[in-house]
Design a protein around this nucleic acid. Structure first.
Lengths: 359, 359
DNA sequence: TTGAAAGCGCTAACAG
DNA sequence: CTGTTAGCGCTTTCAA
């Protein structure tokens, strides 16, 4: 009876009706630390004690209070919560990444705390600030460009031992890495250059890159920069054109087609690379409506390998990217880091240009 | 100096290097409770004190420890964490729902704790058990079918004041509601009946429903039951056929086509309704490869209104569903319940059958 | 308007 | 192998 205040007092203060360790302990005729031990290191509990505890656990329907657990064990790495900041979940390219994260985290005792940033670094910072309150054990952010405030938060998290992983980006040029965080992705400038090379090799000499109209879709812009730079390096004309912002990306692609035509409604470029397959498909459909011949009058090259592009006529040439794998690899890397207490390893993941019938 | 143990002791125990309320208080020359008050009810703090606290807050870069906050304020409803259990995130139909949830929760001080159940009630229960450890303020689950264990957990959560919302389902027949939870969605049997009616009105008399091969995709099965029942009620032949389980749904649809043909490779049905647009599109493409005339030899009707179906030739007739709206409505309902301390209101959301060119 | 004391549920550290 | 003690960082309650 010397142990802790009376049950009445506790229950009064407690607004939730859930059993606590103390309740289980009382039912099992031991103290709470024994129950706690049974839960965390069962081999250190005598067999007959374990039996009683197990029964009490079942009888009370005990569920651990993780807030209390994390608080008691010091916060750092203890929460096994993974905070993930993703530009847009509805966008299928990231949906699969989130799926990969969620699936791989599953069963490793990690929970996924998810927030959408809407391609805004300001929003990313705000979300990050809120999520940090939970002391996530690891943080996954998209891309390597962050606001100064976000950068400070990420560094702080990393310095207290939480792996920070930047996904979807991994520039070969290491001078472009800002925070020194683990990166799992690929080099977008390199993809852009490969897109230019592909079109040039098919004989095109008047190129355009139709960039995303989303201001902070940095990776799309970077592919565009690589594209234009490579073309010019090879003495080929290349221009960056920016897509309008429509509600839906396919629609934006449709609306972008006029920007790729001259005053007489004829193609102003012989080949166009797009920031993503949705834009490319929209443009392709609009081109067909105008009875333009793709690829003869104008070749189109997408990015992302979305389902739609595979089904259109002509099939869309595109760049296949490891959407799901980025999520699973990030989760594996952070789990390894958490469990091994080491730094998470970066990874450059493979992509490939898929020539189909639109180029 | 009588206040709290020396800073050395605390810092030693603390493995994270983050500033606490006590640190901020020390910097401001007040006690921690004053800082806490400033954060929660600033109007109850004197102006000059507030100034000092604000400065100290900025100087220390204080971030609240939400674990501690929730623990102290009793757990119930305090976490403002929303746990969401979704069958599959990669599947675009749910991706938009998650996006709606995330967006609407944003800025309301709620965090989204997400888990994928892979269309498995067993997995749902396991995930739910894990997430409950965080004392979520609200729980969003998909559909109304749950394991007994999950049901018990949900009831427990609800009884301690956390709204439980079932999304994507809302049967008109209230006897089919198991848990008495708030439902935001629509009646799938009704959709199935409408699909049958549509095909029958177009003159078809030999129908099939190509059901999802995923065993626990209950809503797809229910649409199928409604479909078959309505057809038979009207004296029309209707059979349920189950799609094979392929890695990708479009591929599953392609592989399902043979199940819809007779021994001579001719359509065994004049019209087929599908569990979703991916299956329907796959079947449509496979049919075209066999030079079958859609809709004349076989009419196809999808479900979900995915982007692909709008772009194929013929365009796919389908059922448009409020994917995004289910997410936003669920978030709004639970926010209202949390802030107003009332029960969340259920909602039956509208859907519509979109006749296009495949029927 | 501010503070002191107590406690949320759990775990680390040390005794026995 | 089990228990005692002392916190984790915050909020609640009561007192000044």
């Amino acid at each position: 009876m010397a142990a802790s205040p009376s049950l009445k007092t506790r229950a009064a203060r407690r607004s939730h009706g859930r059993a606590t360790l103390a309740d289980v302990a009382a039912a099992a005729g031991v103290t709470s630390i024994t129950v706690s031990r049974y839960l965390r290191e069962p081999h250190r509990v005598a067999d007959d004690t374990a039996q009683k505890v197990a029964q009490a656990l079942a009888a009370t329907g005990y569920l651990p209070n993780k807030q209390a657990g994390v608080l008691a064990s010091g916060g750092a790495g203890a929460s096994r919560m993974v905070a993930a900041l993703i530009p847009s979940i509805a966008n299928s390219i990231f949906a699969e990444t989130v799926q990969g994260l969620a699936e791989t985290l599953q069963g490793s005792g990690c929970e996924l705390l998810l927030a959408a940033t809407n391609y805004s670094t300001a929003r990313e910072e705000a979300q990050l600030r809120a999520l940090m309150g939970w002391f996530p054990s690891a943080i996954v952010v998209t891309g390597r460009r962050h606001s100064d405030g976000a950068l400070a938060l990420l560094r702080q998290a990393q310095s207290r031992g939480a792996p920070v992983i930047e996904i979807w980006d991994h520039p070969a040029d290491t001078s472009r890495q800002q925070g020194g965080f683990t990166q799992i992705g690929f080099d977008h400038a390199e993809v852009g250059r490969a897109m230019a090379v592909h079109l040039i090799e098919r004989g095109h000499r008047t190129l355009a890159y139709l960039d995303s109209g989303v201001a902070e879709d940095f990776r799309a812009h970077e592919r565009g920069q690589g594209f234009v730079a490579e073309a010019r390096r090879r003495g080929v004309t290349a221009r960056r054109v920016v897509a309008p912002l429509a509600g839906e990306a396919i629609q934006a692609g449709r609306e972008a087609l006029p920007l790729l035509l001259d005053g007489q409604g004829r193609p102003a470029f012989t080949a166009v690379a797009f920031a993503n397959d949705h834009l490319a498909c929209g443009a392709l459909l609009a081109a067909q409506a105008l009875r333009l011949d793709v690829p003869r009058q104008m070749a189109l090259l997408g990015f992302g390998d979305f389902a739609l592009g595979r089904q259109l006529q002509p099939t869309l040439s595109t760049v296949q990217v490891p959407r799901l794998q980025i999520g699973t690899a990030a989760a594996q890397a952070l789990l390894a880091a958490l469990d091994g207490n080491t730094a998470a390893a970066g990874q450059r993941l493979p992509w490939s240009l898929l020539p189909r019938n639109s180029t």
